[in-house]
């Protein structure tokens, strides 16, 4: 029997590949920004197909939405088209891509089968969380329990990373709102 969702995954991956090739060949930055947004939206659909719903709608909101807007804003500050890139640099990029791809395929047999129950993530501490969350925290969603409580310190680190990103952008570019910013422009 043919697994329908697997066919769906392959179609999505083929579309991602096609968009990747199109982004390389295009010279118009506006089209490239839009295609990267489409790329993110397709990735989001793919994540949903892989049962990673929360990752899926984060990708849809951040990848397809926010980062497309930011790239457009950045494009408006620079040029509309990219410069011609010499053939020699294409060969170097191709060599790096082929080497990285070959390394990934070399590592592929070591990966557990998709959905397998005895992966390190499912068998070790992950299973422990699955068993204990219901009894200890009374929270049905184990992901929330792990992120919020068991691994709260990690999550705090993530929040501070997000905060640091915001502070970094604010230091470099200002927040575009204060009176001083208007005077600068």
């Amino acid at each position: 029997m043919v697994d329908f969702t697997q066919v769906f995954d392959y179609v999505l991956m083929a579309m991602l590949l096609a968009i990747g090739v199109a982004v390389i060949r295009l010279k118009n930055l506006f089209a490239i920004v839009m295609l990267t947004g489409v790329y993110s939206l397709l990735s989001a659909a793919w994540f949903v197909s892989l049962d990673a719903l929360d990752v899926g709608f984060t990708e849809a909101a951040v990848g397809a939405g926010v980062s497309t807007v930011l790239l457009l804003a950045a494009m408006l500050l620079t040029a509309r088209d990219c410069d011609h890139v010499g053939a020699a640099r294409h060969w170097a990029a191709l060599a790096v891509t082929v080497a990285a791809g070959a390394a990934l395929f070399y590592a592929l047999p070591d990966m557990p089968i998709y959905g397998s129950g005895d992966t390190p993530a499912n068998s070790g501490v992950g299973m422990d969380y699955m068993m204990r969350t219901g009894e200890e925290l009374f929270i049905p969603n184990v992901v929330t329990a792990v992120l919020g409580s068991y691994r709260g310190f990690d999550t705090m680190g993530e929040v501070f990373v997000v905060f640091a990103a915001g502070v970094g952008v604010a230091l470099l570019m200002g927040l575009g709102g204060g009176k001083r910013d208007e005077e600068d422009v």
């Binding site: 926010v66 807007v69 930011l70 804003a73 915001g166 952008v169 200002g174 927040l175 709102g177 422009v185």
Partner: peptide, 13 residues
Amino acid sequence: VIIAIFYAFAGRS
């Protein structure tokens, strides 16, 4: 943070 980054970029464009 995301709103602030948006303001920072969009305020300049």
